[in-house]
Write a protein that binds this DNA or RNA. Structure first.
Lengths: 335, 335
DNA sequence: TTGAAAGCGGTACCAC
DNA sequence: GTGGTACCGCTTTCAA
């Protein structure tokens, strides 16, 4: 039903090829013909069938984006960064959510691959890399964000998690905390990095490390943080500072502390990661480490586009963005 | 590079058609042939090129989703509901963000139309309906969510906004508020409905209506709420209850009240709309009206699929979901 | 039950 | 400058 190249060609008494060339700004078309064609295209509101074009060019101009959870503001913000860059280049974003389920993630990746997306951007929920081997087979470039696999080399963009942990912990130290605990994240690279940063900072003050793990990654990160914090509160002496894997965890921790009748930051200072935009609106505004998710999205998009352009596969890049401390009331004890 | 139907056909010494039929579970294929083909498909990890299929069937199995702002949890949740039902049907979701810009929105819609998405789901940022006329021309079904246009008939799914306003206002009345103000949203249908509900509830108690408008819809709804609340605080006597268009507005209002040295809910009770999942974690947990965004997404997806299936265009449906009151500390004065 | 041929709406290549 | 032709990978139709 929509207008086709052919329709315009017939109407104007030129060939399909000519119209096609005008469409793509080929130089070897007379100005007159070009104008006639353009004019008519506009009148008819012609839009090329991108599926057809994809079939012959082998490029769909689509990028697949797989996230563990769309509701998590971090991924939403990354998505926003992605669209910002991709829109300008005429690409569009196909989003799939894995709901933190490795199996689903794999299915979604295969689906996107069948769709022949030009590149894949994945924040992976899974611990093995078999899906990516698949992508590799089809020569579909992919970039990992936020979470990567130890021992599997791929293009990656994330924040420098070790620095995140270091920044956060040092901040607590500067605020006078002595017994600083870490509520650790699930088995992802980010958790490793942040823990390493914490350890490294703790070495500096010669205090023992106190680490508890959250049970799993799921949609109830705050509940996880609540439980973990209660574990910590049961220890004696209890910590006077806590660095949480992420803000939802930290929010849960805040609740636990509050429920125990203790005060933040006087009794226990708390800091999280993510700088969610409602952190400042919480009962006690939450200190955090900002990951600049939007920039992460933009960088990821740029990298993906570059990978699409370059025929030859270059050595995987690993881009680390700088985290930034955002101190708020939950950790500021010096005033 | 990826395996094609043809490759398998040649290898097995059958025709392309046969393989194609197996792929789509056609009945008229001998069990033996079918098994041989399926076997080989599995071995080679064959995935049909969906772009090619789209070209001939005229169906892309893609649904376009246009939102004003991905970061707004409401839309993220709707998206989640959408993917949940679309995934099962083999559809995928192409997301575009209009950043609350009508022009961008129009461009994105045209882009998606060029992509030949099978249906369009739009939470519109614009006040005219020209883009939808376009969609209509291409016979692409579309469903509006959350916001619709007065005088333009289209399939729509949203919450019953009048009831939202009524519920919220009645709740404030029950809590003993007398001078109840409404911070009104921008010029969208939702704002009209909620305002109407507010008015209707106010009629019942014979108190004057107090309405202020937020300047515009943008990413800083909380700042808008802050400003609007300050306007209200300047009036004399000031309100003792405020029903805000949405939760971000309400959060801004809370800050303004707090900054003015007043107490919530004792001095002023506040309620918003949206039931964002961090409402309960705020300095003062925010009362809200829940819109069940996830269900909204699921319903929208189902409706879109139905529209795609049914050849003939039926009369546009308007589905209204029931809102639900979620009272929290910001409005509970009776205890 | 199987397959040959046509064609979906474009683009690439090469002759004119 | 312009256009004929082949073809991208798949489905559809119809004949064998």
């Amino acid at each position: 039903m929509p207008v086709r190249l052919k329709d315009i060609a017939i109407e104007l008494g030129v060939s399909v090829v000519t119209v096609s060339k005008v469409l793509r700004n080929h130089s070897d078309i007379s100005t007159e013909t070009r104008n006639r064609v353009l004019e008519r295209m506009r009148q008819l509101n012609y839009r090329p069938n991108l599926a057809a074009r994809a079939l012959v060019t082998g490029r769909t101009n689509m990028i697949g984006f797989v996230v563990p959870d769309l509701l998590h503001p971090f991924f939403a913000e990354v998505a926003k960064g992605l669209t910002k860059v991709l829109r300008k280049k005429g690409y569009c974003l196909v989003i799939a959510s894995s709901e933190e389920d490795p199996l689903l993630e794999k299915q979604e990746i295969e689906h996107l691959l069948a769709r022949r997306v030009d590149a894949l951007i994945v924040a992976s929920a899974q611990s093995d890399s078999s899906s990516f081997v698949l992508a590799g087979e089809q020569k579909t470039p992919f970039v990992l964000i936020d979470r990567f696999f130890e021992g599997y080399s791929a293009d990656f963009i994330g924040v420098d998690d070790e620095k995140v942990g270091y920044l956060a912990t040092c901040h607590l130290i500067e605020q006078g905390c002595k017994r600083i605990a870490h509520i650790r994240g699930p088995q992802f690279s980010a958790a490793h990095g942040r823990e390493a940063g914490y350890r490294s900072a703790m070495k500096g003050i010669g205090q023992p490390e106190i680490i508890v793990s959250t049970a799993s990654m799921d949609n109830q990160a705050d509940a996880r943080g609540y439980d973990a914090m209660n574990e910590l509160l049961a220890t004696n002496p209890r910590p006077d500072g806590v660095f949480c894997f992420n803000d939802p965890n930290a929010i849960g921790a805040l609740s636990a502390i509050h429920d125990a009748g203790l005060k933040v930051p006087q009794d226990i200072a708390v800091i999280g990661v993510g700088n969610l935009h409602y952190d400042s609106l919480l009962r006690v505004p939450l200190s955090s480490v900002d990951q600049d998710s939007s920039a992460l999205g933009e960088e990821a998009a740029k990298l993906a586009l570059k990978l699409i352009e370059s025929k030859i596969k270059s050595r995987p890049k690993k881009i680390m963005l700088e985290p930034k401390l955002v101190p708020r009331a939950s950790s500021l004890r010096n005033q």
